[in-house]
Nucleic acid binder design. Structure first.
Lengths: 177, 177
DNA sequence: AAAGGAATGTAGCGATTGCTACAATAGAGA
DNA sequence: TCTCTATTGTAGCAATCGCTACATTCCTTT
């Protein structure tokens, strides 16, 4: 059992139970090993978490690649609505919950958190650019705008202000300027 | 020493050191008491945290009231820029860092986190409405839109994608529709 | 002054934390 | 077959966790 075998199992555990309370022994049990072996393979907990975050960022990228739509939207607003609908999928909820924990860790400068978050956002932006309307005059700028709106809306959603974000969006013009 | 005396002191400690690692003994030391007394006053840690979050939401509201600008901006974009500039103030950083921890807690349904976050967002929205241009035809809708953009931008900023948000905003039209 | 509840100190319990010392096994190359 | 290194198990350490039992002090009310 090597690092590569253990990481996906631990990632699954973290997706379900969170990063904050992730201690060696539960992590080990989820991976079918002992805390002793986790330290043996990764040296210490800090570097384990760093590698785990990197691995999770990889999982997220792969999940995005799987979710490429086959038809392109005809407007930025339709694109936004589609992506938001997909983010609301219950299957995405563990990712969502973990995501805010990663953001919090990045804000507090915990090692590995910011790089992982940065990677995940970069992937999401790439993905979004490919999802933009085919005739959009500025797909990069549009994707960046939609990403900002999306993340703001998702955050407001998780703290019980989904309606606030929705109403704000209704009063806005997403079309290219 | 009552609850009301202890809460501000613990809030200061949490603003500096975070909520996640906040355990009874350090909290007590920051408040000049013992863990024994914290349990005596609040019953247990969970309700302590709930009351502490409520208190912190109150502090945040007060801080916003202090920061009401004396001149109104003349456009939504100017309003946005001003608010973002204020949010970038180093003095706001502890609030920012703590904020994402509260969001993460709300996403994970920890008791008290969502209510606190909801309250803080509601206050921020009220504040934003009062900061909108005087001649804005739809201050409520505009404030909701700006709030969404702000929070998205702030999040992207904390994970090292401030430029992404900025470029997205440049390619957008914030004027009322 | 006596009494009684509120407030506080001391000490510690059982559980969990990250990590380590030591020993045992296993499998590959000589 | 014999080493030698890589891997794994067992046991435990010191620190911290939330919380509690028990005793004591303090202040208010009668």
């Amino acid at each position: 059992m090597s690092r590569e075998t253990l990481l996906p199992l631990m990632a699954a555990h973290v997706l379900e139970h969170g990063l904050g309370g992730a201690s060696l022994r539960p992590l080990a049990k989820a991976a079918g090993t002992s805390d002793r072996m986790l330290v043996y393979h990764f040296g210490n907990k800090k570097t384990l978490i760093v590698e785990l975050l990197d691995h999770i960022a990889g999982i997220y990228s792969a999940a995005l690649d799987m979710a490429l739509g086959d038809t392109r939207p005809s407007s930025r607003r339709e694109c936004f609505d589609r992506v938001m609908e997909q983010a609301a999928d219950p299957a995405m909820r563990p990712f969502m919950v973990l995501w805010w924990e990663i953001v919090a860790g990045a804000a507090r400068d915990l090692p590995g958190y910011e790089v992982a978050a940065q990677e995940m956002i970069a992937r999401q932006l790439d993905w979004l650019i490919r999802q933009m309307p085919a005739d959009d005059p500025d797909p990069e700028g549009g994707a960046r705008l939609l990403l900002t709106l999306m993340e703001g809306s998702l955050m407001l959603g998780t703290v019980g202000h989904a309606k606030t974000a929705r109403d704000g969006l209704l009063a806005s013009d997403l079309s290219p300027s």
